[in-house]
Design a protein around this nucleic acid. Sequence first.
DNA 1: TTGTACGCGTTATCAC
DNA 2: GTGATAACGCGTACAA
Lengths: 356, 356
Amino acid sequence: MGVRKPTLRSVAEAAGVSTATVSYAFSRPDRVSAEARTRVLAVAGELGYAGPDAKGRSLRTGRTGAVGVIFTTGLTYAFTDPYVTAMLAGLAEALEPSRTSLMFIPFGEVSAGMAPDQVRRSVDAVHRAMIDGAVADGLDDDHPAVRVLAERGIPLVRSNETAAGPSVVIDDRQAGRDVGRHLAGLGHRDIVALVATPHEPGRVVEVTEQTPLFPYSRLRLTGLRESLPADTRLRVISGGSNSALAGQVAARAVLRGSERPTAIAADSDVLAAAVAGVARERGLWLGAGLSLTGFDDQPVAAELGLTTVRQPVHRKGFLMGRMLVDPDSERGRITLPTELVVRRSTGPAPSVRLGE
Amino acid sequence: MGVRKPTLRSVAEAAGVSTATVSYAFSRPDRVSAEARTRVLAVAGELGYAGPDAKGRSLRTGRTGAVGVIFTTGLTYAFTDPYVTAMLAGLAEALEPSRTSLMFIPFGEVSAGMAPDQVRRSVDAVHRAMIDGAVADGLDDDHPAVRVLAERGIPLVRSNETAAGPSVVIDDRQAGRDVGRHLAGLGHRDIVALVATPHEPGRVVEVTEQTPLFPYSRLRLTGLRESLPADTRLRVISGGSNSALAGQVAARAVLRGSERPTAIAADSDVLAAAVAGVARERGLWLGAGLSLTGFDDQPVAAELGLTTVRQPVHRKGFLMGRMLVDPDSERGRITLPTELVVRRSTGPAPSVRLGE
DNA sequence: TTGTACGCGTTATCAC
DNA sequence: GTGATAACGCGTACAA
C-alpha cells in the first residue's frame, strides 16, 4: 500500500472525473460546474490533496512565478548593505501586485580569481534557478551569469550602464564629474578615491589599470579624472567589498603619515561613514582638515552631514522589477537623475601645503 | 521552421544519440564516454542548447534547489530590520555550501484583519512557490502558511517556541523574566512594555488580551509579568510593526504627560533606539529619569549603551538553514541561550514619585 | 466536460 | 564500461 502523495490524476480517478476537471476545479473555478467542483474538492480533502503541484504546473505553463536576483557579493554582505536593501525594497514593491516571489542567487566573486570549480558551481546555480526573469547590479556583458541567462532565454534587467539590453541606470560618469568639480572648486589637488572592489574586505590595495573594478566605479573614476585639473594628484585605493571594514582599513592606511590627501572621495556612503569614523579618531575635522564625499545619499549621509551624490535607489529597484513583470512598461534603458548634495563634510582645501 | 528553443530530445536527435546520453553528458559526465560527451556538447553548442531545463528537471527529480522564507511583514520592512537581515545572513551561510537558493515569499499580515481575498492570494503564493523547504519566524501552528506547507509536505523550520515541529528557538519567557527581574531589582514599579504588533506602524494601541501578538511577544510578556512584584503597574502598548516609526510614535505617546513610567521595556533594539531618540528630545536621561531596555543586542545597542537581551540571531538563521539542507543535522527543537546585557540605559528608579 | 497530446528531463533496466 | 529503451513525474490546454 504505497502512501505516496496524491496527484491530480489520483484525485480524478477517485472522484470519477477527468484530470481536466480536477485541474479546473482548482485553477479555474468558473470553467466547471459548482456541483462537480464541490465533489472534486471533497474528494481532494479526503485524500489530502493540497492542489496542483507547483513543479508540474510550472513545467506545463513554462512560468515559475519568481524573479531572480543575482548577487556577486555573498548574501551575508548583501543584507548589510543599505544600497542593496533599498534596491530590494523597491524591487519587492514592484513585484508585490503580481505576487511574484523573489529568488536570491549567490554567485561568487568571479573577478577575484575564483577557482574554476567555484565558477562552475555558481554557473550551475544560475542554470538551475527556477525563475522567469532576473535582475542584477554591476554585471558586465561577459559575466558568466549574464551568459547563462542569455542562453536560457531568461530576461535580465541590470542597473549598470555598461549593460547591453534592458537596464535602469544613473549617469555614473557625470556623477563622478560632479564630485570632481566640487572638490576641485574647493581647491583640492591631492585626492584619494576610495572604491569598493570584489574581494573580501580587510586588505588595502592600490588600484591600477589592471585591478578589476565594478563597472560603476570605473565610470565614476573616469568622470572624476576628467573634471580634475591636470596638477591634481589622484590616488585610487580599495579596502575590499563595500563595507564598514573596507572603509576603515583603507582610511587608516591613507590618513596615516605625511602622504595624507586633502580630500577623500568614497564610492558609497557606507565607505564614507567608515572614513568619517577614522577621521574622528585621528582628530581630523571633516570639511576642514579633511574633506570627504560619499555616494548614494543613504540616511547615514544626512546624519553625518556628508556631501554625497543622491541617487534614487529605491526607484531603481522598483523600475527594474516593473520592466520584468509589466509587459507594458518602458523597455530599453532608463536613466535616472543624480544630484550632488553638498553638506558640511567638504570645505576649502588647507591653503598652504608643507613640503611643496 | 520553428525556431523554438532546443530541448534535450532535439539535441539527442541531432547528435544521433539517445536522450539518456545527452542527459548524462550534462549531469553525470562519468557515466558516458569522453568521446560521446564532447560530441554531444558540440552539437548542443551549435544548437544553442544551454543544458537541461530547470523546470523539466525539477519535475522529474522532485527537487527545486531552493528554500523559502515566509515573511509576514512586507519585504520592504523586512529588509530594513536588522534582526531579519542578521537571520538571513546566517541562513544564507548555511545554504551556500549546497548552492541552495533563497526564495522570499511575502505573506500579508493575517492577524491584522486581512481581507479574505488577500489571504487567498497569499496562500496561493505559498502554494505555488517552488521550494524544497521553508523557514519562518513567528508563525503559529494555525497560520495559513503553515497549513499549506504541511499539506504540500514541505519541511518547515520555525524559530518560535510555539511551533510544533522542527525549530530553533530561544527561551523568550525566561528572557522576559530576566528583564523584569532586572527592572524590579532597580525599584521600577511603573513600567511600559513596548511590543511590535502586526500592523502598519504609526498608530499607537494599548495591548489587551484580545490584541493579536507575535508569539515571542506573548511569551516575553508572560515572563515579564511573572517576575514583577504585585504592586507593579504594567502597561503594554504598540506602535505597529517593528520599526523606528513604531517606536517613535509609541514613545511620544508614553513620555508625554504625567502618566510617564519609570522604565520602558522594548521588544527589540530597533524600538528601543527609537525610544532613546524621543527621550533625548524630551530631555530625559537614560538610566536616570528613564530606564530603557531593548532586545536582540544588535550593534546599535552597544552604541547607545542599551541594556538588552542578547540572542544569537545569526546562529539561529544558520541552524535553521542547516536543519533543512543537512540531513545529518540535529532534528527537533534547538534552544539557544540568551543573556541579559546590562549597560547604562537602566538605573535605579527615581526614589520619590510625586503625586502618590 | 472530457479525452489526450504535450511540456522536458531522469533514471532504472536492459543489451551489447 | 557504454549506450539505448522506456517508464515515469504532474498538470494544462486544445479540440472534440
